[in-house]
Computed example of a mutant assay.
Amino acid sequence: MEHGRETGGDDPGLTPHGRTDADDRARISARSRAAAEGRAVLAAAGIDVVSAAEESDARSGRMELRLPGDGPRGGGSSLQNLTRGTGTIEADYLNGEVTLLGRLHGVPTPVVDVLLRTADAFARDRRRAGSMTLAELTALVDVEVKMAHSVGA
């Protein structure tokens, strides 16, 4: 076991899903960056953030949140839409509220903005979920963050 989980194959640097520890750290970082923007937006809008314990109690075993690629899962509606190639996705409703509140309260949301645009583009172009590498997505986010900081400076 490494960091509380089995590693994959003969390579001690791979997870059971064939990712490196660096991939896992990057994915967690991307999620953390988006969550931090969401918390900042909610704080600026005067909306209380629900604690992890409160969220867990409210879900009471009905839903399990995992990072993409962390084992088999049925997938939420967004993943299902991409898998079926419907050409639509709920990102405007799910992430769009964060970007709207950010604009209304002067809080930049470059990470969430990139995730929203990327999800919309994937749906519109009927791209397969997972067809963009985490490195590619991170590069898009980093460019957007730099632009947001240069505008705000």
Rank of each mutant, 00 (worst) to 15 (best):
G75I: 11
V41I: 06
T109A: 00
A53D: 15
L115W: 03
H17Q: 15
G87R: 08
L79H: 12
M63E: 12
T83L: 11
M132C: 04
S60G: 10
I28Q: 14
H17R: 11
D57G: 02
A139T: 13
D24E: 15
T99R: 03
Q80M: 10
G75Y: 07
E55D: 06
D48T: 12
R62G: 09
T118V: 10
P68L: 12
V98A: 04
L116H: 11
A43R: 13
T118W: 06
T7G: 04
A153D: 14
G87S: 07
G61C: 11
S56M: 10
G8P: 00
G152P: 00
S78H: 06
I28M: 13
G85F: 11
F122N: 11
I47Y: 04
D11H: 05
M1G: 11
V151P: 00
I28V: 13
H149E: 15
P16K: 09
V151F: 13
N95S: 05
D11Y: 04
V141K: 01
N81R: 10
I47C: 07
P16N: 05
L82N: 04
L115Q: 10
E2R: 15
E144C: 01
H105D: 03
T133P: 00
G13S: 13
A135T: 14
L82C: 02
P16R: 12
G38Q: 09
G96T: 05
D92R: 01
V151H: 14
E37V: 02
E2V: 14
R126T: 08
H105S: 03
M147P: 00
D11A: 01
L115T: 04
G130W: 10
L94W: 05
T15K: 09
T15A: 08
H149W: 06
M1K: 07
S131N: 10
S150N: 05
D48S: 12
A153S: 15
T15L: 12
T109R: 00
E2H: 15
G13T: 12
T118D: 11
T88E: 14
A153M: 12
G102K: 02
T86I: 03
A119N: 14
R66K: 14
L140M: 15
A22Q: 14
A153H: 13
P16L: 15
T86C: 02
S131R: 08
T118A: 07
H3P: 00
A148N: 08
I28D: 10
D92A: 01
A53K: 09
G102Y: 00
S29K: 12
G74E: 14
A129Y: 09
R84T: 03
H105V: 06
L134R: 06
E64V: 12
A91Y: 01
A135N: 08
E64R: 14
D120C: 01
H17N: 11
D24Y: 06
P108L: 05
V114D: 10
T15W: 06
G87I: 09
D92W: 01
A35K: 03
A123S: 14
R33G: 00
